[in-house]
Design a protein around this nucleic acid. Structure first.
Length: 494
DNA sequence: CGTATTTGACCTGCGC
DNA sequence: GCGCAGGTCAAATACG
């Protein structure tokens, strides 16, 4: 009994220490993010000035250019609401377009929390400022009518926060049926993972409603729907890979219209981000204009820069032929061996590339996000009742070296670089929170040490923004919640 | 007994 | 129009 008490005290002390480290990491991340944000804003201002200069003497096209310009004036805000707005100054009547994605409770304290957010530093999420007006949407519609997903930053569109649920769902179900993106097939996100269990635990609650033997695969395909909310439209297909039975392919479709458990937010963020990368605005080789993207509720600033597809390589992002179903599909591959040999700079080069040779024979391309994860069995979330359980479920059990998906994502993105942020094995980490924060912090920190041109290329690349936003949201969002929990617990503790 | 799963029937879209 | 395949429904069944 005495021993238990002592061990509990030791654990409490460790928790306090952990909490201190988290706070320190958080403040560092805040600073580094502000630097990044400042750089981005400066670039936006420069871009704006350049556009104005180049448009002199072209009054005939002035309106068009204004529209185009404002299409590009989309701010991807990682985290806290900015104290000072975008330097464009054109943000007026679209305040309501801001999507505050962090507030999980959605109660009346929301605004207050956001006001305090900068002080507390706990409001990580995505903020998308649409600087266009509804009339311009028609223009966009006209230009992008074959790709309605691009222009879904409509007020009517139920937004989803970084944790994968929509902000407000009064009429979401009805309105969603009328949305343009529903006129075409929904984007799917397929996750390949090594999993011994019949289904991957992603933190959500699923109810099986069907099973089919799909052609070309002797393994039956199981159909699940989300049961967290009765009206949730999210579906999931689970099927084992015919070539490797140990690989479980989980395909997600739709957007949760309800709050998700902590343990499910990682997957929700992953699917959102992955789907967003599929958007033509993010990956189209033909389009050079920025268009806002809102898929699965995640709003990113996406422009035409593309990522060169290199199928069957370990590139982080690949495009391949569309799925047989005809749905645009993003594949998150967590089954392949570590791509530590992948040069980080080559990825940056791809980020910086303004065009690519993507062959798009089909309007529904598939994108393959190849995250290295050779050893991890997929336990994305345990749906545990308390936050600690949820945390452990979502971010990996320390003792079993399970790691969160974004841990691997970031690790993949940094592992091949010429610098190793930590020089330690991620799987050997005994402090996953600290590790995750360190990764984020060091990414931004290392970026500052890069040449200015590289920084420019990185910070202005929407793909990077999307990926960074997702990573930050997933990791920090969860961690911050834990931070709160641990803070509260620490305060309560004697 | 309530809930979840199974499984055959049915619906729908697409290619020929 | 027909057949095929994917996807969904719903009654039957299993389970706790």
């Amino acid at each position: 009994m005495r021993f238990k008490l002592d061990s509990t005290k030791v654990e409490m002390e460790e928790a306090k220490e952990e909490n201190r480290r988290l706070k320190s990491s958080l403040s560092r991340i805040k600073k580094e993010f502000e630097i990044l944000q400042t750089q981005y804003n400066q670039l936006m201002v420069q871009h704006e000035d350049r556009n104005k200069f180049s448009s002199k003497g072209h009054h005939q096209d002035e309106d068009k250019e204004k529209i185009s310009e404002r299409e590009e004036l989309v701010l991807l805000s990682l985290g806290r609401r900015l104290k000072s707005p975008v330097p464009s100054g054109s943000m007026t009547n679209n305040e309501e377009n801001k999507k505050d994605f962090m507030d999980e409770t959605g109660d009346d304290k929301k605004n207050d929390d956001h006001e305090k957010g900068s002080d507390q530093g706990i409001r990580m999420g995505f903020e998308y400022k649409d600087l266009s007006n509804p009339n311009e949407k028609k223009e966009i519609d006209h230009n992008q009518q074959t790709l309605p997903l691009e222009i879904s930053n409509n007020n009517k569109i139920p937004s989803e926060n970084s944790f994968g649920f929509k902000n407000d769902g009064d009429d979401n179900e009805v309105e969603e049926e009328l949305l343009p993106q529903n006129l075409i097939k929904k984007t799917r996100v397929s996750v390949r993972s090594r999993c011994e269990t019949p289904t991957m635990n992603d933190g959500c609650q699923w109810r099986k409603y069907g099973q089919k033997i799909a052609k070309g695969n002797p393994c039956p395909r199981a159909y699940y729907r989300c049961t967290i909310a009765p009206s949730c439209p999210v579906r999931k297909q689970v099927q084992r890979c015919s070539e490797d039975m140990s690989i479980l392919i989980s395909t997600y479709e739709g957007t949760h219209n309800h709050p998700l458990p902590m343990s499910a937010t990682a997957m929700a963020s992953a699917t959102s981000a992955a789907a967003s990368m599929l958007l033509p605005g993010a990956s189209s080789s033909s389009s050079s204009s920025s268009v806002p993207a809102d898929l699965h509720g995640l709003n990113f600033s996406l422009s035409g820069n593309n990522v060169t597809p290199k199928p069957k390589s370990h590139n982080f992002l690949q495009t391949s032929s569309p799925s047989s179903s005809g749905h645009p599909t993003v594949t998150l591959d967590l089954t392949t061996p570590s791509s530590s040999q992948q040069p980080f700079l080559s990825m940056l080069n791809r980020f910086n590339s303004t065009s690519s040779n993507v062959s798009r024979s089909n309007s529904y391309p598939s994108t393959n996000l190849n995250f290295s994860n050779a050893n991890t069995l997929m336990i994305w979330g345990g749906g545990g009742g308390n936050r600690n359980e949820q945390y452990r479920a979502a971010y990996g059990n320390i003792s079993t070296h399970q790691q969160p998906p974004y841990h691997h994502m970031i690790q993949t993105r940094t592992a091949g670089s010429s610098f190793d942020p930590f020089g330690r094995s991620s799987s050997s980490s005994t402090r996953p929170i600290q590790t995750n924060l360190d990764y984020v912090g060091n990414i931004t920190h290392q970026m500052q040490s890069l040449p200015a041109e590289t920084i420019k290329a990185i910070t202005t690349d929407p793909t990077f923004q999307s990926a960074l936003a997702t990573a930050l949201s997933s990791i920090i969002g969860g961690d911050l919640k834990m931070d709160n929990v641990t803070s509260n617990e620490a305060e309560k503790s004697p």
